[in-house]
Amino acid sequence: MIKPRALKEGDRVAVIAPAGPPDRKHLNQGIRVLEDMGLNVVIGQHVFDGEEELAAIDQKRLTDLNEAFCDPDIRGIVCANGGYGTAKIADMIDYEKVKSNPKIFWGYSDITYLLNAIQKSSNLVTFHGPMVASDLNEELRTKETVSSFSPLFTGETITYDSHRSPLNTLTHGKGEGHLVGGNLTLLTNGLGTPYQVDAKGAILLIEEVAEPAFRVDLMLTHLKQAGVFNEVQGVVLGNFQVEGEEYVKLRKVLQNFFANASFPVVENFHFGHCQPNYGVPLGVKAKLTTSPPLLLIDSGVM
């Protein structure tokens, strides 16, 4: 895998919105957080566009992404928020240009589709992490979420244990492989495409938000029948953001689905639609153990 260069104070980063326009107030609040890290922020020219014909807006979002990758002065690309539609531009990305201009690409939710597409098509490490408007705004952000950008500067490895969140083991064991994954809905949508997640020999990250238990069960079954779990080395489950009776149902679904897994499965990692929302690199080596629950992730930058 190709690792992008680590960030340093004074670097320029681009904020783009390939899944839909962000709230202006929240975006500005998040940009100030990036600036407090010592970064110079450039906003994509089409970040707030969203009223045009779908084909036109797809092209504009693609333009912002391509221009950010091709600009030698841009050292990182951070997505503004999630939404819908990144799958539609995946076929139009110039992956050779991405490969020849490696840089940090960071986001989650609908951005999952691009994280996997870029990783598979250009061999570039991508980053599943909190976004500018949706996670760094004054209403939601936590110091832990902000601090998860630190490894982009330091190149440090990431150790995730129960000090960060109470981890629960569903299936015991040890596993080692490259870290892949993201949002469950987007992982399912990618099945049968050139951008299907490659979980062979991997630690698979799965997160979701407010989906009913039966939908999670259906999507996990879809992944299973597509062979995604055949040679996986471990599964890390995020916080699925459900409450009350639905949470009880979801727990049963997860326990039953992974009951006879031949690989370790640990749940309640704070990745994705939650606060704190910890950023992690995808495509790098990772180790998952269950006694005690622990995930070790190599640096995503060089």
Rank of each mutant, 00 (worst) to 15 (best):
D161F: 05
I77M: 01
R141W: 09
V236Y: 12
G238P: 15
Q255A: 14
G107L: 10
D58I: 09
N230L: 13
L288Q: 06
N183D: 13
F214T: 08
V13E: 14
K25S: 08
V253L: 00
S147V: 04
D217G: 00
G201F: 10
K285P: 04
A90W: 03
F229V: 02
Y160M: 03
I31Q: 13
Q59P: 00
P276Y: 04
N123W: 08
G300M: 10
Y247K: 08
N256I: 01
Y160Q: 02
I206Q: 11
K103L: 05
Y160A: 02
N189M: 09
D91C: 01
L136D: 12
D135K: 00
V15E: 14
V15I: 15
P21D: 01
A56P: 00
A259R: 14
N101K: 02
I118D: 03
G83D: 15
P21R: 00
D91T: 01
Q255G: 06
F153C: 07
N268Q: 04
L152K: 02
L250P: 05
L39M: 10
D36H: 03
Q29I: 07
G107T: 10
G10K: 00
D298N: 13
E67F: 04
L34F: 10
V125P: 08
V180M: 11
S122H: 08
H172S: 13
P292Q: 03
R32Y: 06
Y195W: 15
P281V: 12
L218D: 13
Y247L: 08
